[in-house]
Amino acid sequence: MTGSTGAVRVGVDLGQGGCRAVACEGTRTGHASTPGFWGADTDVLVADAVTAALADLGPDRDAPVRVGVGMTGLNGQSPPTEPLRRRLRAAGLRGTLRIADDSVTAYLGALGPVPGAVVAAGTGVVVLAVGADGRTARADGWGALLGDRGSGHWIGQAAIHRALRDADRGTPGPLGDAVSAAWGPVATLPARWRESPPTPERVAGFAVMVAELARAGDPAARQIWRTAGRLLAESTVGALRRAGLADAEVPVAGTGGLFRATDLLLPSFARVLRAGAPNARPVPATGDPLAGALALAGPATGPPALTGLTTHVHIEERAEHR
Rank of each mutant, 00 (worst) to 15 (best):
T96A: 07
V50G: 04
G39T: 13
D102G: 02
V119Q: 02
L265G: 02
V12M: 05
G205Q: 05
T188P: 05
F269E: 12
L74H: 08
A214L: 11
D218W: 03
T227R: 14
G134R: 02
D41Y: 10
L231V: 07
D166Y: 04
I155C: 03
G124F: 03
A246M: 00
V179F: 03
I315F: 13
R20L: 14
F206T: 07
G73P: 13
G257A: 04
A178E: 09
G116M: 02
P251M: 03
T307S: 10
A90Q: 09
R86P: 13
T188D: 13
A55P: 08
R162W: 07
D218K: 03
T188H: 11
G152W: 02
T51Y: 01
F37Y: 14
T5D: 08
L290Q: 13
R20W: 13
L175Q: 06
E25H: 15
T311Q: 04
E212K: 11
G147D: 15
T199V: 09
M1V: 03
D62T: 14
P59A: 15
A21M: 08
L240K: 07
A297D: 06
G229T: 07
M71P: 02
V252M: 11
G254V: 10
D101L: 01
A40M: 04
R66N: 12
D101I: 09
F206K: 12
F269S: 09
G131W: 11
G238R: 15
G76K: 06
T123I: 02
G256Y: 05
G244P: 00
A204D: 05
A40C: 04
D43S: 15
G3E: 00
L93G: 12
A181M: 00
V250F: 07
A63Y: 15
G30H: 11
D140Y: 13
V104T: 08
E317D: 11
P185F: 05
A285D: 03
A139T: 07
R66E: 14
R149H: 09
E195S: 15
E25V: 00
E320D: 12
L111M: 11
L265N: 00
G17I: 09
G17V: 06
G36P: 06
L231H: 14
L231E: 11
A52C: 08
A23E: 04
H321P: 04
R318T: 09
R202Y: 02
L258V: 11
A243E: 04
M209D: 09
D177I: 12
E212M: 05
G18P: 13
L213P: 03
D177R: 12
A300G: 13
G95I: 01
D263W: 09
A275L: 14
G257M: 10
T81I: 13
G173W: 09
L108Q: 04
A291V: 12
L54P: 10
T81D: 14
A280F: 00
T310H: 08
P35N: 07
G3C: 00
A47R: 06
R20P: 02
V65N: 05
L294R: 13
G217Q: 03
S33A: 15
P299K: 00
A91Y: 14
L175I: 01
L306H: 05
N75W: 03
A159I: 01
T29S: 14
S268E: 15
V118Q: 14
R66P: 05
